[in-house]
Structures are given as C-alpha cells and as structure tokens.
Design a protein around this nucleic acid. Structure first.
Lengths: 200, 200
DNA sequence: CATTTAACTATACAGGTTGTATGACAAAAG
DNA sequence: CTTTTGTCATACAACCTGTATAGTTAAATG
C-alpha cells in the first residue's frame, strides 16, 4: 500500500463520514454532492473522481457500514453445533447490525428502492442473508427430520422476513429496548420451526 | 357539487394516475412535475395549482390509493364476535390492501422515509393500524384473561410488525402466492397470542 | 344578461441540482 | 528526472423545483 493510496483512503473515509452525517440530517434534499464535499473539506470534483456518481457514493457508503461488523460474528454463529443455538445467534448478530446505524440504514434502503443502481447492491446483500436462512433450516431439518418439503421452503421465507432490517426497524421504532426486540424475534422464529423452548 | 368541480376532480384523477404510472417506471429520477404533467396532458402549472408542490402531489397520491378499499372491509372485520376471527380478518384485509398496489406503495414509503413532509402523512395511517392492533389484543385479553400486562404491550408491537407493509412485501417478494403469505402471517400471529389452531 | 370567479395556461425567471470537459498543480512513485 | 496520481478551479449543458405575472375561457352568480 503506497503512501499516496493511504492518504487517498483517508480522504475517502472523510467523505463517507460526511455523507453519513448529511444523510442523517432531517431531509434528503440537503444531501447533495456539493454539501457532502464542503462538509468533508474537499472539492466536489474529488467526489466524482472517487465515486464516479451520486449513486456510486451511496453504494460505497452502504459497503462502508456493512463491512464493519457482520462477517466475523456471523461466521462464528454458524460454527455452533446446535441448530437452535445457531438460529439464536444468527438473529442476535443481525439485529445488532441493524441496530448499529438504524437511521442511516433506513435511508439507504429508501434510496435503494428508488434508484435501481443503488438497489442492486442492496439486493445482493439480501441474497447472502437468505442463504444463511436456508442453511439454518436445512441443518434443523437434518437434526429433526419431521418436516415435509413445502414446509421448509416456507420456513426459509419466513425466517428471512424475520431477520430483515424492516422487521427489526418496525419493532424498534415503537421504543422497545434492543434485548426485548431480540426476544420477540426469537419467539417468532420458534413459531417458524415449531419449537417449544424448554423453560417456561 | 358544481359542474366545474366535477371537471376539476376528473383532471386531478388523471394527474394522479399519470403520477402513479411514472412512479412505477423503473427510476424515480424520471418522476418530475414536467413528465407527470405531460403524461396527464396538462400544464405543469396545473399541478402546482392543484397540489401546491411535489410533496403535496405525493401525499395526494398516497391518500388516493389508501381511500379505495380499507375502510369498509376493515370495519366489518371488527364486527365479528370472536377475537380470533377478527384477528384473522384484520390480517387478511390488510394483506389484500398491501397486495393491491405493492410496487407503488413500496416507492411511496421510500419517498416518505426521505421527505419528512410526505413521511408525516404515512405515519398517521400507521397510527391507525396500531390502534386496530391494540383493540384486537385487548379484546382477546378480555376473552382469555391469562395474559399479564407487559406481555400485552409486546403483543401489540409484534402484531403491528406482522401487519406492516414491509413484512407483507418481503414475504411476497420471494414469489409466494397471496394466500400462502396470508397463511404465514396467520401462523406467526398465533405465536403472538399463544394460540394453537384446532385442526392442525 | 352582465359580471365575477375558478380552473387552467403561457412565458419567464431565480436558484438549485448532476455530470462532464478542460486544464492546472503538487507530491509521490518509478 | 520523468511520469503518474490524486486533487482542485473554472466553466458549461441540461436538467430540476417553485414563483411571479399575466392571459384565457367556461362556468357560476347576481
């Protein structure tokens, strides 16, 4: 990594942080290449040089917040032997990620619904989560083989819904504490796999 | 209702239909007052005369699709004596509404997350749905009084999450048929109130 | 019937946006 | 020492929203 690239990356990060701050401030109309550049203390053309377009900047911002977290903890969840424990951890880790920057994620998703270019990069990450859901259901199916096939596919869809950002957000928006939201999600997930928790 | 108002209302409707069509066409960037006016065969200034601003047009569009449907069927659901039946119908009617114009609703909600003015009008309707959820849980609590209080409040939140557009949309987006989605929602709602359906 | 009013339109404008073209510049890399 | 890379300045085209001003026509009103 050359000295120049290091400096450039530091600049990139400053820009992304400025973009984040402005995306959080009340109205999306305030979010323009000009204001982001000014807030980052950088020329507007630098943004175009680094991110090519406004959509490119938003995609980069999405990757930026997605990369910190996720990977490590999620992989660990899948190393647990018990599929119930894995399910438990999977939900908890994802909820933690959604909770880490809720307002920002909500706005990024909104932009993704309106701009097909940004939308594609979100759908990609969605697909990875779906794969996680499928693996969990398959493992559970292997452990407790009383589940007929049409059921399993439905379970995957339901689990994906329960682990989505939108689900977490609508639960959290009514003021619930993080732990309570996770408890609700766990209980709903039990219903998906017809599991009755031992205690209570 | 004067003859003039009738003609004006017909124009309003033409504009709203044009706005709907353009909001559905791929990219939100194509949605401008100019293109909407052209598609409706009307001057751009007529839009400002009728809706005051772009946000006003989007709010009106939201009211427009919200008014057809909902009211009648929802009220009927609450007339059922059995709270389980009411819950059942409540979910089915709302799902039907979300399904009636999914793409459009998704985009309108996205705009609402980015524009605080449009957002307020969406939050209002959300509050009405929340009230419905509360009534259902309270009725159930009255019928089957084995539910302690912290539980009931949680049930309301969970039910609101399950009946939200976002929940329906993420389930439907994976290709499920409407009836299947409703079945999934019913099953998850049973988990909320710890209800076991009589026949498997 | 005469007059007012409501809905709509035409033109023009101010101030904002994105994205590109062109060229310069300094510091790091080779 | 020469080249490359990241940044910046200025300028521009083509949009956008929202407003001001004034004109038109058909319906409502007295």
């Amino acid at each position: 990594m050359t000295r120049r690239k290091v400096a450039a990356n530091r600049n990139r990060e400053r820009i992304l942080l400025a973009a984040r701050a402005l995306l959080l401030s009340q109205d999306f109309s305030e979010f323009s290449m000009e204001t982001v550049a000014r807030q980052a203390g950088v020329s507007r053309l630098t943004l175009y040089y680094q991110f090519k377009s406004k959509a490119g900047l938003l995609e980069a911002l999405n990757d930026f917040i997605a990369r910190r977290g996720e990977m490590g903890e999620l992989a660990e969840a899948f190393r647990a032997g018990d599929p119930i424990r894995t399910l438990h951890e999977f939900i908890r880790v994802l909820a933690g990620f959604w909770d880490s920057d809720r307002e920002l994620i909500r706005r990024l998703r909104a932009v993704g619904s309106l701009d097909s270019e940004v939308g594609r990069s979100l759908a990609e990450r969605n697909e990875r989560r779906r794969h996680g859901c499928r693996v969990i259901i398959e493992r559970y199916y292997h452990w407790y083989p009383m589940l007929p096939e049409p059921w399993a596919s439905r379970a995957v869809d339901t689990l994906q819904m329960l682990t989505s950002f939108e689900t977490f957000d609508t639960l959290a928006v009514s003021g619930r504490k993080f732990d309570e939201v996770v408890q609700i999600l766990h209980k709903q997930a039990y219903a998906v796999i017809n599991y009755t928790p031992p205690s209570i």
